[in-house]
Design a protein around this nucleic acid. Structure first.
Lengths: 349, 349
DNA sequence: ATGAAAGCGCTAACAA
DNA sequence: TTGTTAGCGCTTTCAT
């Protein structure tokens, strides 16, 4: 009994070489479009590649050269802002040989580390870390191991390129807008941050600082009111519940992220409060949902697409030349005024 | 001048073997928890692994054995329903050695093929294809190359395991609900599907069929009204615009997916129509946004979490035994009634 | 229980 | 321009 002919062994470079009657080196060169091949050789090899359906094994390649794989680590797939960033990355990468593979850290430091290590183990050519929560030392170590670009984290360029938005300014735009409408009691829901380094480097902390600074600049320093929860829908919901329990309720809530604002609106709807009639709400990120008709959220546009495209460009540059000096690109956010913010209700106090 | 000691060469199995004074075979066995190692050997090796910070190279492993990598291909990261599925997958995989890596096909057949091939090239141990649009032949070929589980696609088990929801029944639940409220003109927005095979296998087509069937069952066969666009927000918006242009407007719109319903609500808001006062809207998927206060969308719960967990289980089973017979798991959807559906407005016609 | 050695598919010196 | 050969880091027979 002969074994089945459907022995689906992978087609290797040896098969192609034999089929084309040339050496494996020749095949390798042609496939990689390297120099030193005659037109005749190229056509023979390419014909064999075509006929046999040969595809180079990225894992075998990895042992010698590139994998043509770029890893993206996201804190959370649910936050649509990250999808905007990814669109920018994907667009910049289209047309290149590189394949994007992503994974979520599930907003967890251990998870982030696991995923990052896993990508290094898999010989990725470069890493794109979106709003990572790892310590700076750890980020430096990662960047030392593999070309890395960090998105959405401030602080000194420490061995890796950084692309971010100026969150301090962005928060100021929101406060200015609300104060301009006549609000005095503007509360802010932030992502809890204990680590001192991260207090400076993480976008959420920068936004909270920007809020504080702007409140003072508008003579509202004594009305600073921050609730610390987390940057997700649940955090917005919980934060709002806490605010509503107070005797002195705010007339406006500035959520540190749109996804948080969603939770805020959840809680307000549940409490029977109208927006912006009873209370104004502003977010941050301008996720596509913000311009959803029934929501129409006032927010800050971070240009995620542009951030992603820039990060991809920097990563390719760094892969091409790992020694080039690191750079920090900071974009300026813009305020997007929609229908969740208005003047505060009459009869104050 | 000695060369810098920071020669950050990766720690390999050879380094560990030398450090522990044993063979690389021994290290390999210990690391893989294979049998045939003494307790003493194990502790020596593990100590060396710890001290040197050794991590096995997944790419090198790939040439002989496993990569412990599972690939997930999603049509679109923006659809939150897929995040639900991923949660289920992730949960089932936590505690295993497997690492999940995902990529988006951007709702494009070529893109899907590119991504799938890329994952095969990277020696993934298994593939999870979510609502793939590839032909059945192509899916079979993929499944023949690597253990594959297909999520959200119907049709005969053709070499791969299938986990799906009964979309035909789900669509029926929606129609029954709307008809029960008194609606007669119930329009459906579907994802355009020309390919005959896919007309049978794709969830969107099954939903459209379920809609047709249920309309007839409720004596509304002559009111069947389908608009073909795409399963995204834009598709919902466009479809609704088309419906609103008609002289005989529907009193209810059944969108084939929640993300489509979002677009429907966009268009209705823009047109100054109230929901459900002027028109009822139902979706499909029960994405977390559906229970967002200001939206509160009536929809169909697909239990994405359960689908994901089941798919992950089947994939691990298949990797363990590629020859095992394929199975099809179908879940029954349930209707979730919220505030976007109500009786049609008076003064009909 | 332990280790030597071959080899996975590819790339890169080096020769011819 | 072309081919020979030696690895890359790991797993796996096969001896011992």
């Amino acid at each position: 009994m002969p074994r089945p002919t459907t022995s689906s062994r992978r087609v290797t470079i040896v098969d192609v070489a034999r089929h084309a009657g040339v050496s494996t080196t020749a095949v390798s060169k042609v496939v990689r479009k390297a120099s030193g091949t005659s037109a005749q050789m190229r056509s023979r090899v390419l014909a064999a590649v075509e006929q046999l359906g040969y595809r180079p094994s990225a894992t075998a390649r990895a042992l010698r050269g590139r994998t043509y794989t770029l890893g993206v680590v996201l804190p959370d797939i649910r936050n649509p802002f990250f999808a905007d960033i990814l669109d920018g990355v994907t667009e910049h990468l289209s047309g290149t040989e590189y394949q994007l593979l992503m994974s979520s850290s599930h907003d967890d430091e251990t998870g982030e580390q696991r995923v990052t290590d896993a990508m290094i183990d898999r010989s990725m050519d470069g890493l794109l870390l979106v709003a990572p929560i790892a310590s700076r030392v750890r980020l430096q170590r990662v960047a030392h191991t593999v070309p890395t670009v960090v998105i959405g984290r401030h602080g000194p360029a420490a061995g890796y390129d950084i692309v971010a938005d100026d969150d301090f300014i962005g928060a100021g735009l929101v406060v200015a807008h609300l104060a301009g409408l006549g609000h005095r009691h503007i509360a802010h829901i932030e992502h809890d941050e204990a680590d001192p380094i991260r207090r400076v480097e993480m976008p959420n902390a920068r936004r909270a600082d920007g809020y504080r600074h702007a409140m003072r600049a508008h003579g509202l320093g004594d009305r600073i009111d921050i609730v610390s929860t987390t940057y997700n829908r649940e955090g917005g919901y919980r934060g709002t519940r806490l605010l509503l329990e107070r005797r002195d309720r705010p007339t406006a809530i500035f959520a540190g992220a749109d996804i948080v604002a969603i939770g805020v609106l959840d809680a307000l709807t549940e409490a029977g409060l109208t927006v912006p009639g009873d209370i104004s709400v502003a977010g941050y990120d301008d996720i596509s949902f913000a311009r959803f008709g029934p929501v129409s959220l006032t927010t800050v546009d971070q240009a995620g697409h542009q951030i992603g495209a820039t990060a991809a460009r920097l990563l390719l540059d760094r892969i091409a030349d790992p020694a080039r000096p690191t750079s920090q690109v900071t974009f300026s956010p813009t305020l997007v005024t929609r229908r969740t913010t208005a003047a505060p209700p009459r009869s104050p106090r």
